[in-house]
Simulated assay, not measured.
Amino acid sequence: MFWTAIAILALVAVAALLPDLLATQNPLQTDVRSALLPPSAEHLFGTDQSGRDVFSRVVHGTGRSVGIGLLATGIALVVGFVIGAISGTVHRSIDIVLMRVTDVLMAFPEFLVALLVVAVLGPGPANIAIAVTLAAVPVYVRLARVQTRTLRIAEHVEAARILGVRPLPAFLRHVMPGVLGSLSVLATIGIGSSILAAAGLSFLGLGPAEPTPEWGLMLAGGRNVIGQAWWISLFPGLAITVTVVAATVVGRILRAGRAS
């Protein structure tokens, strides 16, 4: 399962970085005479209402859909590490305030938090990335705090302090690598959740606008003709599902390996 998931993610990476290598047709090219054609040798995933090639749109939409997930996860990891490390090292009163705010945010589903943020900031790809990032931060804050507090009292860290290493160098050298290692494993799983949240917001019409190729937007575009042209929504939905499952499988296997 691990290597199958890795192979799928490698294919997703190729589609995101080099879409023209997999899809030769223009994803924005319309042809009303070829509208709603079923999958065939000429159009592997069929065509949509405007005659655009669905396969090309799925491939070219990979970079935008996956990119939002990667960007949001990366920023959430950094912000979560900083806040969690501060919470795990500062005075208890500040720690309590930061953790209570984190608890409140974690009490709501990530998608609901992202939806509320978009409602405040307004629709758009940039605001979706911000919303997904803010929704994911609390999980990283919690883990970073726990790992920081645990590693601070580890024997090798105490030994470094006894030998005269100052607190900041001791943290950077002995605590931070362990915290980032745990966060990176969590981030592997979080990428899938971020991709799913971004696609969900785009499906609701809060992300990119037509004719931008984006998986969630393509799902929304095919829902009104699902009975007549099922392929318009099916293939973007499969792309989301397969990518999220592959990222989750890799993350869980890495987490199990780290725990053992």
Results as ranks from 00 to 15, higher is better:
V141A: 07
I195G: 09
P109T: 12
G51V: 01
N26P: 11
A246Q: 01
S40V: 05
R92F: 03
V14I: 15
W230S: 13
I6G: 00
R52S: 05
L22D: 06
P19E: 09
W231H: 14
A135G: 04
A259I: 00
V225Q: 06
V118D: 05
E210G: 13
R92G: 03
I94Q: 08
L116G: 15
A170K: 02
A76Y: 09
V32C: 00
V104N: 13
W215N: 05
E214L: 02
S50Q: 14
V245T: 12
V185C: 06
R258V: 09
I226H: 03
S65G: 09
A136W: 01
E158R: 11
R52V: 01
G205E: 07
G178Y: 07
A13Y: 04
L98P: 00
L98F: 13
T150R: 12
V78H: 07
V12T: 08
S260I: 02
A5F: 11
A144I: 04
Q147W: 04
N127L: 04
L22T: 02
L151Y: 11
E155G: 11
W230I: 14
S260V: 09
L9Y: 13
M99N: 12
G124F: 08
L115F: 11
V90L: 10
I83G: 01
G216M: 08
V12N: 06
P138V: 15
T62Y: 02
G216P: 03
F2S: 09
V132L: 09
V58F: 02
D53P: 13
P236Q: 12
T89Q: 14
S184E: 05
A7H: 02
P123W: 07
L116T: 04
T150F: 10
L168K: 08
T148L: 03
A229I: 13
A15W: 00
D53T: 13
V78N: 09
G84Y: 03
L172R: 15
P123V: 09
R161N: 08
I8L: 14
V14N: 00
G190E: 05
V97D: 11
T148H: 02
A256N: 15
A15Y: 07
G63V: 04
I195E: 07
G122C: 14
R33L: 12
T24I: 11
G192D: 11
L21M: 14
G124A: 11
V120Q: 15
R92D: 11
S202D: 15
G124E: 03
S260F: 00
R161P: 00
R145Y: 03
L105A: 12
A154T: 00
R145T: 05
G63L: 01
Q25F: 06
V58E: 04
L22K: 06
A85P: 03
P27N: 10
G257S: 15
R92H: 13
A170C: 14
G216E: 07
H43W: 10
G251F: 10
T150I: 10
V32W: 00
V245H: 01
A247V: 05
I191W: 05
L121K: 07
R142T: 11
P138Q: 12
W230D: 06
A135R: 02
I128P: 05
P211S: 13
V14C: 00
H174Q: 11
R252L: 15
V250L: 09
R52A: 03
L217I: 03
M106N: 13
S93Q: 09
